[in-house]
Simulated scan of single mutants.
Amino acid sequence: MTDLGQIGVAVDGARIFNDYEDRERQVVALNDNVVHDHAAFVDECNGHPLGDGTTYHYHGIPTCLSDEIDVDGEHSFMIGVLQDGFPVYANRGEGGATVTNADLDECGGHMGVTPEFPMASITTF
């Protein structure tokens, strides 16, 4: 499990944080990292600035970004990279099928081909 703070960076330059807002893991920024739950501290892009108004960051799929670059019926395009080097995608897998938590391994990864990596690789959703 990741700590609070930056765990990656999106292709638009915004930081990617995990989906929790506190160390006790009681306040989740998003519902399952897929659906925006309209929490007051998360905007329509699933992000917000830090409490001091600096460092805008995402807590899940940046829907403003993925909605612009993804194509219906196709695998999501890469939206970022985690600090361990793994690519990050929205929630569309091969053929545009929705990837759910049940499809992910214990580390939140999934093995398969992507637009950027046509040979099978591990990806994070």
Rank of each mutant, 00 (worst) to 15 (best):
R92V: 02
A90M: 01
S121E: 07
R15E: 08
G109K: 12
D70W: 03
E24R: 15
N31F: 12
D72T: 14
M119V: 14
G108P: 13
I69F: 00
Q83S: 06
H38F: 04
D105S: 10
F125D: 05
I122G: 11
V11H: 06
V88T: 08
M111I: 03
Y20S: 12
H75Q: 10
A102S: 12
D22C: 06
V28F: 01
D67G: 13
C107E: 14
G73W: 02
Y56D: 02
D105H: 07
E21H: 15
A102L: 03
T54I: 03
D67I: 05
E116D: 06
S76E: 04
L30S: 14
N91C: 10
G80W: 00
D103S: 05
V35F: 08
A29V: 01
N46Q: 09
N33D: 12
G60E: 04
D67Q: 14
D12G: 00
V88H: 09
V27L: 13
Q83M: 02
H38C: 07
T55E: 14
I16A: 05
V27P: 05
S121M: 10
D67M: 06
D32L: 05
M78T: 07
V113K: 14
G93N: 01
Y20H: 13
I61C: 05
G108N: 13
T55N: 15
G60Y: 02
S121Y: 04
Q83L: 03
C64K: 07
P49L: 02
H36E: 09
G5M: 02
G73D: 06
L104P: 12
T63C: 02
D105Y: 03
D12Q: 00
V11R: 12
I16R: 09
S76N: 09
T100N: 09
G13A: 05
D84K: 13
T123D: 00
T114V: 06
F41N: 14
P115C: 07
I69K: 03
F117G: 06
T123W: 01
T55L: 08
T2P: 11
M78D: 03
L104Q: 10
G13I: 01
T100Q: 09
D22F: 01
A29H: 06
L50N: 15
E116K: 07
A97N: 11
R92A: 13
G112Y: 08
L104V: 09
V34K: 11
I122Q: 11
I16D: 06
E21F: 08
E94D: 11
V35R: 14
P62M: 04
T98A: 04
M111N: 09
D43T: 03
F125V: 15
A29L: 03
D84Y: 04
A40S: 14
P62R: 08
G112Q: 11
A10Y: 00
D103V: 03
E116V: 02
G95K: 09
D72L: 10
I122S: 12
G47V: 01
F41K: 13
R23W: 01
H59N: 15
Q26M: 15
I61N: 11
N46R: 10
G80R: 04
G80N: 06
V27I: 15
L82H: 12
